[in-house]
Design a binder for these strands. Structure first.
Lengths: 211, 211, 211, 211
DNA sequence: AATGAATGAGAGTTCATTCAT
DNA sequence: TATGAATGAACTCTCATTCAT
């Protein structure tokens, strides 16, 4: 497999010192701020540097190209998201399959809606970036975590776990994203999330044998 | 309801003559071509005009801003998509609910994968466009068509049709898009689509009373 | 002397028919309107034609270049202005010199302030036009008219009439224009106009012998 | 009082280093050169930058818009002009009123005719700029300087100094400008300037009481 | 005679990136 | 090492003018 992050997009140096880490974080935060206030079109290196309180030159020390910055930002976002999903999976280890899907839905919905504008801004920022490797890597982490979780279900046992897993993940993540993007009222969204859980449970019922 | 397309984004003039209509179509096609070959970043007004074989000036006669072009392109895409979905819904009128969801999945998947690169290109093109009004309008057309379809189901009757409908649409469209974006192998994708149908049927079973 | 209006700037055809004259007038008026509402920078041929209710093509029949239009507009303005001054001069024939300067000041001030915005707009429109020939021609008409008038003064007789005349004209027109451009309050302006008359009379007193 | 120069028209950054100051001066001089050789219509940012020997980008660092450049240029011109007039007024402090007007006429005429083409070019450059605030500010500086001067006249004392002052300033500046713009032969112009002085003295005589 | 679609050079402006300080 | 002035290619958009209809 090709490395997820090509050399040209990786930070020039890993931040070894605390100061450097703080700088990088400031740059990330500034990028999000600019994205939110000015939109992806007006996301310029100068603006980000200014907002972050560093000079462009310094920024180029950490991110050799503008695209590297956006790439890193998304990498970080997906990393955190994957970690949260993994945590949920670990936590639901051994629970009933029904509990699992509910927890998964809840986690993903939560992650998206905590800072909805940031979520949206990040989506828009990658428009001209080939982030498929990033996405693929994220998907594999999730796949692996959810597979392990489902395997441990206390009440169900699946013939073709890989397929069931992929179906559930695709459906849940797809539906949640869709609901999120339609900007529905909170209550409406909650209703759909509930129905989504119901649907997943009905599916599990249909494809699993009792353990 | 506010108009879907603000004045600033609507074509300056409707093509009255056949020649003008051909010009507009050439511009649309050129936009897609440039999007495919050069990416959204390199989608420039000059490049589009050149590829379309017209002058920039002419292009600006029909699209007063670059964004208007992208907006119109997406509007057209969503329009065609909505029509196809409506056609499917009409066709499935009176069928069983299970047939309906299969047809819906099939139609949407088909629409996305016929020219997958175009689909992807269009998604990327809207990065700095507020297309939420467009999306909303599309969603309402779909909602209305699928609701009418489900109402006519020969074998099922739903207590809260609106909720069921929205859940199904959100799930199907979300899952299909997600599967599409992961660029799975054909067979894998087909497998998931099948499972998705199964899942929807299980859900329908669970929430409907026999007619 | 070179002709005031070079061939390249003269209307392609003299309006012989009433309809054509109406068209030309509509174009003039439209030019002023656009100048007022959009400024000289946004004074475009298309905009003028549209406002005048004719096509660009038709406009180019009458004015072969954009500069020809502006040139003609200014020519017309100066023509009307010269006529008014000549009328005043004729009217004051045989009056006292004091009356004459008052009438001159009054006429010029009146002409400028009747439609102050139009006056200003016209000034701005000529920025990149060599209108010195136009100005010169206007100046000569005025010179000639005022000289004749002053010659007939009932109470004064000048040794060097040409010099006195040029001094008075230069001073009056310069002062009035200056006062106009400073956009003083009406009363203030009126005060200065009165003082200007006083000044001119004092000058006449100083340089004339009683008749 | 509102600031004379709106933020949008003020230089983006003040030149801090000697090099930057030189750059700004080069840009000013280049603007005048282009104005002289190409006319206001062909005064483009690229041309100015090229002539100044800097890149457009650099120019935009100091002048955020083309209009800002023209505005600054005029501001500078009026500033220098006001300073010269103030110097003359200081120098004539305590002189006779007759001397004063002569000095004023002389100074203004001198300023205009030293580099007549530059003067003309600057006038034309402001066509689509609202420089009334600039003009107003200039006028007030002049008013104040001339008022102080006239107050100190050794031989005259005015009942309504403000009115006399404004009349003199309006007349002198208007007449000088008018004479300048007519491009009279040197001798002719000199003759009129002399008569203008005479006229002003006659006026002063008429409206002042001996001290 | 009148129209207005088409042209395309050229305008103002931005911004990723470099490099002397 | 950090800075931010300088660069200039590339962008979006305009508009005087032409000419097929």
């Amino acid at each position: 497999m090709a490395p997820v992050t090509p050399q040209s997009l990786s930070p020039r140096k890993r931040p070894r010192q605390a100061r450097a880490a703080a700088t990088v974080d400031a740059i990330y935060e500034a990028t999000i701020q600019v994205l939110l206030s000015d939109g992806p079109q007006r996301l310029t290196t100068t603006r980000v540097a200014e907002r972050a309180g560093v000079s462009v030159g310094t920024m180029y020390q950490y991110f050799p190209q503008k695209r590297a910055l956006i790439h890193a930002l998304n990498e970080r976002y997906l990393d955190i998201l994957a970690e949260r999903i993994e945590a949920t999976c670990r936590q639901q280890h051994g629970a009933s399959a029904g509990m699992m899907v509910v927890a998964l839905i809840e986690t993903y919905w939560q992650a998206k809606t905590e800072r909805p504008e940031v979520t949206r801004a990040l989506y828009r920022s990658v428009a001209d970036l080939d982030n498929s490797a990033l996405i693929e890597s994220f998907a594999q982490r999730v796949d692996s975590a959810t597979t392990q979780m489902l395997e441990s279900a206390s009440d169900s046992c699946f013939q073709d776990l890989a397929l069931v897993n992929r179906t559930l993940v695709t459906t849940i993540f797809g539906a949640v994203r869709n609901a999120f993007e339609r900007q529905l009222a909170d209550q409406e969204a909650a209703g759909i999330m509930q129905q989504l859980a119901l649907m997943c449970r009905a599916y599990i019922e249909a494809v699993s044998a009792p353990r």
